[in-house]
């Protein structure tokens, strides 16, 4: 390997002991805040996940995890299985299995192939369909149609991004795909904002939280694919700047959401303080997974900006980085050391 290397035990030990902390894909020294490594997932992660997820609910295996109780309970169990198979995965202490649906582990640049990304997209779409079937039919019809059209556009762009290396007009295709994905992302953000605001003015249900989660997953998928398109044409400076801006936009989208307020809104129809407390506490774990997942997405996208900056400083071309990454067949996680 030219740029990436196996994660050394001292980094894993440092995270486990609390000396280091993983923020997004950056391992930081807690005392100084200095980045000590950039983590990058490889395609091996997916096969490990498939193995660890065997025997659990089909919604997880099919690539989308709603905020259901099964996912919450099995989170720790699945993480333990992963660490048993590969010790470096102990780095992912804060991993919520539910976030796998958003974009794999979300470490570094996404290297998931078209089939996997499309599977995620279909999973999200199916989840949205199931949620909307449970809620008000009249008000959701128009919105559903728009979201389905956006998803169809995203599916087309994923196809283009996945075949960039085989195209003669790679640069223009990548730029166009990135632009179209950004447009789709913006439209999905508008849906997210609308849904989020509507939820704050009335009693809400766990379906509402699932809806937000699904929209966030789709926005994140657009970002991952667009980011990879820019890497493939070596537009690292653009990738860096876009990651900064999108992290801020994702942060702004999720800023007004807190687990407590979402859980309180779920308990709004309670008739007394006892049933209020029960309903709030019942909804809180789901709300925490949703909001923490959104914040983790912000950290992950933000750290992609640092990764791009690091590649620029180390004069590592984007396509070469992707090529080396695609060649890894053993390690699920690799790391890039920051420039001294």
């Amino acid at each position: 390997m030219l740029f990436l290397r196996v994660v050394p035990p001292e980094v894993v030990d440092g995270v486990v002991s609390g000396l280091y902390k993983v923020t997004g894909s950056v391992v930081r020294d807690v005392a100084s805040g200095r980045g000590v490594a950039f983590l990058q997932e490889t395609s091996v992660v997916q096969s490990l996940l498939n193995s660890a997820l065997s025997g659990v609910s089909s919604t997880l295996q099919n690539g989308f995890s709603p905020l259901g109780a099964i996912a919450l309970i099995q989170n720790q169990q699945i993480k333990s299985r992963l660490v048993e198979v590969q010790s470096s995965l102990a780095l992912l202490q804060n991993l919520q299995i539910g976030t796998l649906a958003v974009s794999g582990l979300g470490l570094g640049v996404s290297i998931a192939g078209f089939a996997m990304m499309l599977k995620r997209l279909k999973g999200i779409e199916a989840q949205l369909g199931a949620i909307e079937a449970k809620i008000d039919r009249v008000t959701t019809d128009r919105r559903s149609d728009d979201i389905r059209m956006i998803f169809a556009d995203v599916g087309t762009q994923l196809d283009i991004v996945d075949t960039l290396s085989a195209r003669s007009n790679r640069v223009s295709s990548a730029e166009a795909a990135e632009h179209a994905l950004a447009t789709s992302s913006g439209r999905l953000e508008a849906h997210f904002q609308q849904k989020s605001e509507a939820m704050q003015i009335g009693p809400m249900t766990s379906e509402d939280m699932d809806m937000l989660w699904s929209l966030a997953a789709a926005i994140r998928l657009c970002h991952e694919a667009g980011f990879r398109a820019l890497y493939s044409i070596d537009e690292l400076e653009a990738a860096k700047q876009l990651a900064e801006r999108r992290a801020q936009r994702f942060l702004n989208l999720s800023q007004g959401l807190t687990p407590d307020s979402l859980a309180r809104l779920c308990a709004q129809s309670a008739s007394d303080s006892i049933s209020f407390a029960e309903a709030r506490r019942l909804a809180l774990p789901q709300a925490e997974v949703l909001v923490h997942g959104l914040r983790d997405s912000v950290a992950s996208i933000s750290s992609q900006s640092e990764l791009a900056q690091n590649l620029i400083e180390n004069q590592i071309p984007g396509p070469a980085y992707l090529e080396e990454l695609a060649g890894e067949k053993v390690e699920p996680l690799l790391m890039l050391a920051p420039r001294p």
Partner: peptide, 22 residues
Amino acid sequence: KFQAIAAELEFLAWRDAQLAAI
């Protein structure tokens, strides 16, 4: 900018924890 975002995330985490604790 990533440090500013990291700081904002820290403060949001503080806020979320306080609201739930209250």
